[in-house]
Design a protein around this nucleic acid. Structure first.
Lengths: 161, 161
DNA sequence: ACAAATCTTTACTTTTTTCTCAAGATTGCG
DNA sequence: CGCAATCTTGAGAAAAAAGTAAAGATTTGT
């Protein structure tokens, strides 16, 4: 279970935009340079993010990108969903081995595991906004630590019984 | 953020072994057939799991695989770690763009996010054993739902304030 | 000892993901 | 207008992941 390159770089490009003051914008080149990515690659990512409505692009001299909404209103789960080309909703379509259908219809321990994992990640991401990612290292860390503590408690309650 | 094919199929092969009674074992062919995977592929997975000490293999006629420990003592986080070729510990080594080093040293909003996500997933996985995955759909689902509820509560406590 | 069944291991092929390139489109400026 | 800067878009190259094949090693049974 890992974060894909597209998810990571896409998020980082957004973070760059989130640091801007009102009226400021960044060109593809600036974004690429700041994140250590090629301009071509950044271009594709920004294109995706633009299509999805997270950023606004302006062409021509003096063009560039800005966030389409305040960074405090952009939740990471939405962003990840775009950068990751959806997935999960059709999990059993994906890994069905050489057979035509997923073998594990009905009662199957694997499916709830996979679905559950995705939900947990999604839930965590839906509590974090772009704004929080900008220079707010402390708060993000705290949020996750708290989540983990309660996660552990929950597991004990259920499994320990 | 998604589960890789190797993670999923590897887990499923283990689940097959976990359903066996004492003294029973499964051959590569049987495992492959039951999970709808090619024998070659199952072979590679079982080889990995064997090297990591999760299963025991016996060659020759009457050979096959069995779990190396009781299924109740095999935690999913350990298994995933093997099937996923480690990762995370060296996250900043992985996605560093075209530069020699990760740009985000020190204070960086992205790193705690990535690390935090992995920890949350790992924590969830470390509370589930192979035994629970066998025909226990209900229980796995419950565990995750409970974790999610508390996760949400935790987030509200911190972020809402 | 030999043959059959089975796991082991390495090299290779295919598929998917990631990244790049190059041509096109739009905007602003002189 | 026409040039320069910038985003857009699709094709395709490169890299990584997944999967396959084939030859080798080990065990059991006769």
């Amino acid at each position: 279970m890992k974060i894909s390159a597209q998810e990571e770089y896409g998020l980082r490009c957004l973070v760059q935009l989130a640091t801007l003051g009102a009226g400021e914008s960044l060109t593809l080149n600036q974004i690429a340079e700041r994140e250590g990515v090629s301009q071509a690659n950044a271009g594709k990512l920004m294109w995706l993010l633009n299509k999805a409505g997270f950023v606004q692009a302006m062409r021509g001299t003096k063009g560039g990108y800005t966030l389409a909404r305040p960074s405090g209103e952009i939740y990471l789960n939405e962003v990840i969903k775009i950068l990751d080309a959806d997935e999960i909703d059709n999990h059993c379509e994906g890994y069905k081995g050489v057979l035509d259908m997923c073998i594990h219809k009905g009662d199957c321990g694997i499916r709830p595991l996979i679905v559950g994992l995705h939900q947990i990640v999604n839930e965590a991401l839906s509590n974090i906004t772009l704004a929080q990612l900008v220079g707010e290292e402390r708060k993000v860390k705290e949020t996750f630590q708290q989540i983990q503590r309660l996660e552990r408690k929950a597991a004990n309650q259920i499994l320990g019984s």
